[in-house]
């Protein structure tokens, strides 16, 4: 059990760092959804099923939907070409 917890926490922290340092905004939003899904697993492990359901419905579903609408409205809804990614260009 403890290794499952360690792996899930590692995935969560890696995704949280990816939210801050990924150059593409779509990838950052997807990484924040990954953080929410890992949190759902953690809440289920610590025996809080109500909170886990709320986090799955809101954190991974509705929050990603709201952020995706924001991406579309703010003009971030574009994928980078390979050369731009290699050159390390950021949107911000």
């Amino acid at each position: 059990m403890i290794w499952v917890v360690a792996v899930v926490v590692f995935i969560m922290l890696a995704a949280a760092l990816a939210v801050l340092f990924l150059p593409n905004m779509i990838a950052a939003v997807v990484a924040s959804a990954v953080v929410s899904l890992s949190l759902t697993v953690i809440f289920a492990i610590v025996k809080a099923p109500d909170v886990a359901m709320t986090e799955a419905a809101i954190g991974a579903g509705l929050s990603s939907l709201i952020l995706a609408i924001g991406l579309k409205r703010l003009g971030y809804w574009k994928t980078d070409s390979i050369d731009k990614v290699k050159a390390g260009e950021r949107h911000d």
Binding site: S32, S36, L39, L74, Y76
Partner: peptide, 16 residues
């Protein structure tokens, strides 16, 4: 927008 994403992370950590 990245500040908003960071706010989401902060809030998730406080909830945990």
């Amino acid at each position: 927008f990245r500040m908003l994403l960071s706010l989401v992370l902060f809030e998730a950590g406080a909830n945990l």
